[in-house]
Design a protein around this nucleic acid. Structure first.
Lengths: 241, 241
DNA sequence: GGTACTCTTTGACGGCGATCAAAAAAGAAA
DNA sequence: TTTCTTTTTTGATCGCCGTCAAAGAGTACC
């Protein structure tokens, strides 16, 4: 589940515009901002870099900025008292850094090298309150995020580990398609333990679920980060079932 | 998880104002609407009644209105291909009827007799687009809902059924407190199978989880819809763990 | 290229919950 | 009330996954 972070428009990068990382006019799913509004927001954004594994902020930290990913993958997770964290994976175009009572509600860590726009919370709020259509944009994002959260809950109600994994792989594939990335292989930037946490199962159980799909010739793995769907029909049968 | 529906301000009822069911000036958590805006919205709202068990709308129906509960409990659920539905329970003040591409994303059914405001989607959108501060109100609601969705995901990552149940009971208790209702007993208007679906376990497993808590003298049940916490410390120990 | 580390896989075992089935309790209707 | 239906509980068995432990693969660093 996306604990935080909101899917945005396009997959590519536009250096001066934190709100429309997509190609300026092509392949933009939601075109809800005027040039003027985008220009306003571009002014307050700074470009920041994080190396792989680096902490971006901690749960409970005083929130001072929201982030918008330019490139790379961010893992956001909420720590619980005992159990595994609740996680979400964020890709270019995703917004993250949502707050509750002025504090970050989760921890964000760069899963790959990450470049992102950093926008001071104060400035964002000022602009937000002076522009009604920006609000609409945010609402659209929140609805997207809500759908993802719901999808995660759907996934977690599945009882067999193989089905959770299949649903997860299908989701990743769909996200890749939405980002206009090559779709012959599914790319999984995060490590196995992150996936296990996301699926709500243990690492050994995840490993066995992978094996089960490989043995049945439904998928093939190349290294740790690449999966190819071999038997599409059988695969969809498990994932959608 | 709340598949849909958004928590709003107060617990009580104000007959002419669909957006602030709470007492006009007291105990209102979010006071984000001007009198003018509330008056605008009151004009377009109709009061509708549903009897216990009645369907309010079906998943996939063309969406023509959003609802705001005045009294009663609504269960919203999304049907899946095979598995159990993903559900949410909605109480007075909750907004529901969110859409995806002009169609309802879930099915809503009255769990108890329900009275609600029904607001034509068109009118809501028109007013929304002409009022920036209403947008903010909606954003607050979406954030609330997102938190609930996250809480549901947290619950579903728990592996033992007793813990899921304890977390659920604790959540219901908190919602009751937020609604300023008596808190000596936890009231569960929905039936066991709805709870089981929400917890992602089967009905027998839920029954055993209840029994386990009763046998350990942590809770006592009165009829099907009332639960009392006897050993608060042990109970919180399981729920928060 | 070699070494040390982390990440991942595999194995064995036990427990919890799913499943199937039937009994019991609660509610609804007559 | 009595009867019928629906909901909930209980029981028995099986399978999946959690747990603990160790071996293997991959990666980073020197």
């Amino acid at each position: 589940m996306p604990t935080n972070g909101t899917r945005m428009a396009g997959p590519e990068i536009h250096a001066t515009d934190p709100w429309t990382p997509g190609h300026p006019k092509k392949h933009v799913r939601h075109q809800l901002l005027s040039d003027d509004e985008r220009a306003q927001l571009a002014k307050i954004a700074a470009i920041v870099r994080f190396e792989k594994g680096e902490r971006i902020y901690n749960q409970g930290d005083r929130a001072d900025a929201v982030f918008n990913i330019i490139s790379g993958v961010v893992t956001a997770y909420r720590m619980l008292a005992d159990g595994p964290p609740v996680m979400s994976f964020l890709y270019p175009g995703d917004l993250f850094g949502l707050t509750e009572e002025a504090r970050y509600i989760n921890t964000a860590r760069a899963t790959t090298p990450v470049i992102a726009y950093k926008m001071p919370l104060q400035s964002v709020q000022r602009i937000l309150s002076s522009s009604a259509s920006l609000d609409v944009q945010v609402i659209v994002k929140l609805c997207d995020e809500l759908r993802q959260a719901q999808h995660h809950a759907v996934l977690l109600t599945q009882k067999r580990a193989v089905k959770r994994l299949a649903m997860f792989l299908e989701l990743q594939e769909h996200l890749q398609i939405a980002r206009n990335e090559p779709t012959s292989e599914i790319y999984l930037p995060m490590d196995r333990s992150s996936i296990a946490d996301y699926l709500g199962i243990t690492l050994p159980a995840l490993s066995r679920a992978f094996r089960a799909l490989v043995v049945k010739k439904m998928i093939a793995t190349r290294g740790r980060h690449h999966v190819k769907v071999l038997d599409r029909e059988a695969f969809k049968n498990i994932a959608d079932a």
